[in-house]
């Protein structure tokens, strides 16, 4: 068997596991397990993106999806309760709306160019310029990196500024305290800890 054939098998196996993980996330009611499984879901999709050669997207998916999101979900679980309530009842309307939307989206993919098609409209615009010039202009072996870091350098800088500003705003909203303000109030509880939170160390659930 060749390496390319093996990649197809890897794709199929990863997609199958992705489906089962998604179903398990829906079915499970224990939110801690769900948080762990969403981490696994992100890692799976990052593996798929690596198999699709989109290494930079896989990087982002792993860092944001598996890393930060898991931590944020656990932080949320610390503030809320760890069990999901049963949904009140089965809703046929919602199911129909979801099926119709999904069907429309799948129908729309039939208009898209085939995977890896070199004549796809997205690859006709500025991509030939990047592919020809990247080696001489920038000198970075990876073309995606040269586009992100050099051709669109100002764009990336602006994005970083926006994300940084958003981060500062969120920190102000959350009112994170500084370490040196913690001295008065030794008996004070943790920020936002609900009064009926379980005792620390009690890991049974």
């Amino acid at each position: 068997m060749t390496g390319a054939g093996m990649i197809t098998i890897v794709d199929i196996a990863l997609l199958t596991m992705l489906c089962f993980t998604a179903i398990a996330i829906m079915v499970l009611r224990h939110l801690f397990a769900v948080a762990a499984l969403t981490g696994a879901f992100s890692l799976l999709s990052a593996g798929l993106l690596v198999a699709l050669d989109a290494v930079d997207v896989a990087f982002t998916e792993a860092a944001v999806g598996a890393g930060i999101s898991t931590v944020l979900m656990l932080g949320t679980l610390a503030l809320t309760q760890r069990r999901e309530h049963r949904p009140p009842r089965f809703s046929l309307t919602a199911l129909l709306v979801v099926i119709a939307t999904g069907g429309a989206l799948i129908y729309a993919t039939s208009d898209m160019p085939a995977y890896g098609d070199p004549n796809a409209p997205a690859l006709k615009h500025v991509v030939p310029f990047y592919i020809e010039g990247s080696q001489n202009d920038i000198g970075v072996p990876n073309i995606v990196t040269s586009i992100l870091a050099s051709y669109r350098g100002y764009d990336t800088l602006g994005e970083v500024a926006v994300i940084f500003t958003a981060g500062i705003g969120v920190m102000f909203l959350l009112g994170l305290r500084r370490e040196d303000e913690d001295d008065e109030g030794a008996t004070r509880r943790g920020p936002g800890r609900p009064p009926d939170a379980p005792k620390p160390g009690g890991t049974k659930s």
């Binding site: 981490g39 290494v55 792993a62 598996a66 656990l74 932080g75 936002g192 800890r193 160390g201």
Partner: peptide, 28 residues
């Protein structure tokens, strides 16, 4: 990239363990 994933995994493990121990991630 595999190395980066290993680092991400490590952060996730630390968060899970801290959550188990203190039931909170925001403690100083």
């Amino acid at each position: 990239i595999a190395l980066l994933y290993a680092l991400v995994n490590f952060i996730g493990t630390i968060a899970v363990l801290k959550f188990f121990r203190y039931r909170n991630l925001g403690l100083s």
